[in-house]
Design a protein around this nucleic acid. Sequence first.
DNA 1: CGGTATCCTATGTGATACTG
DNA 2: CAGTATCACATAGGATACCG
Lengths: 129, 129
Amino acid sequence: MPETTDSHEGEFRIEHPHRELLDQVLDKWSLSVLNELCERPCRFNDLRRAIPEVTQKSLTATLRRLERNGIVERSLLSSRPVAVEYRITPLGKTMRPPVEVLLEWVAAHMPEVERARRAFDDDGDDDGA
Amino acid sequence: MPETTDSHEGEFRIEHPHRELLDQVLDKWSLSVLNELCERPCRFNDLRRAIPEVTQKSLTATLRRLERNGIVERSLLSSRPVAVEYRITPLGKTMRPPVEVLLEWVAAHMPEVERARRAFDDDGDDDGA
DNA sequence: CGGTATCCTATGTGATACTG
DNA sequence: CAGTATCACATAGGATACCG
């Protein structure tokens, strides 16, 4: 074993560039956008309609960020009137399994987390008994 | 076979309470903290030393958030001088597999992402030819 | 030792208006 | 249609100082 000391199983350790990528692909609207794009290519306004809570500005920012990271691809379909289509890339599709695993963890443990939150919040409530 | 090939709807879909939990357990310092705590219980200043980039304030906030979600546990060891110990909970330990899967995805695809970023940034560089 | 309190800035996000 | 520009605001996070 030429590899050193840390043979202990994978950890929670993360370095900065990885952290940054994680923040960009898991940011507030990314998963909702990918959820649409993994079903079909979408026009900009298709996405707005599919995700009504997102503003134009945030949707644009999200798409640019995902495009820059190679997760989605933007194609100009015609120039007059402007028509643009967004598609998930092969790289983007590789995100599905890990994201699903994560989402399954969240769904599975949400009840336990909510119990913990209630316990914590109640303990904090020392309203002068 | 009731399952049509594209009945995989909602793979990236996430609802608000889930989104919020994800934000709290994957925030800037959480993984670094969990990385320490999954190896051993730590005092507050142990964590500061182990993660020198974090400020007191952010570390406190991170620990409180994780504690509230049931991911870490805080115990008062003695009162004078104050001694506190943080430990990962069983619930916290369940985060490891999904987080590892995620981190493996990041590590595996970082080179491709970086290529995409360079391509994107270069395209943006219309330096007026 | 293990925090709080305060101030400050940067960023994310929304609202709204405008444009090619 | 698919954005950009601008203003406004809330929050995250850092810097610093103080406290029991």
